[in-house]
Amino acid sequence: MENKCVVIVDESMPLGTIANTTAVLAATLGKLRPEMIGADLPDSSGFLHQGITTMALPILKGNGPLLKRMRSQLKAFEPALLVVDLISATRTTKSYQEYAAVLAADEDIEYFGLALFGDKKTVNSLTGSLGLLR
């Protein structure tokens, strides 16, 4: 089985929030799927550079309602499909404990982004209609 990963973000957010959202989602993907990260590599002088992702990681555009709808639909594909989400509480909370409390209490979660990792055909069928963020 060939795997694929993508990140989908709300394109209406400010550029800094988009950048932060993609960074947080990518860091979590790297933690949960360490096989995505290649070996450290030397340059021509022997200086060692840390391994980076061995897979493409397209950033796709969406909007808040799409992300909310997708997150709900993606539950049917888990755990075969890894889904990582980032919610708006990350902008208003000052600690991970506060974030956890908001997440546990909020009945109307607003999503900033989603990251998917899994079977390429499944990921393509779920995200194939979304354009690249440019």
Rank of each mutant, 00 (worst) to 15 (best):
C5S: 14
V6A: 07
I8W: 02
L15S: 04
G16I: 05
G16N: 06
G16Y: 04
T17Y: 05
I18Q: 01
T21F: 04
T22W: 00
A23W: 00
V24H: 07
L25W: 02
G30R: 04
K31M: 08
L32D: 14
R33M: 15
E35H: 08
M36V: 06
A39R: 12
A39H: 12
D40H: 07
D40A: 15
G46R: 06
F47I: 14
L48H: 11
H49G: 05
Q50A: 13
T53C: 14
M55H: 15
M55K: 13
A56N: 02
A56H: 11
A56G: 09
A56C: 14
I59Y: 01
G64L: 07
G64W: 09
P65L: 10
L67I: 02
K68E: 10
L74T: 08
L74R: 12
A80Q: 15
V84K: 04
D85H: 08
I87W: 06
I87Y: 06
T93N: 04
T93P: 04
K94V: 03
S95K: 05
Q97Y: 09
Y99P: 08
A100G: 07
A100I: 05
A100E: 11
A104G: 15
A105C: 12
D106K: 08
D106C: 13
E107W: 08
D108Q: 11
I109P: 10
E110S: 15
F112A: 03
F112H: 07
G113K: 01
L114M: 11
L116G: 09
G118K: 09
D119A: 13
K121E: 15
T122K: 15
V123D: 07
T127F: 03
S129W: 05
L130H: 00
L130E: 01
L130C: 00
G131P: 01
G131C: 05
L132C: 09
L132T: 05
L133I: 02
L133A: 00
R134V: 03
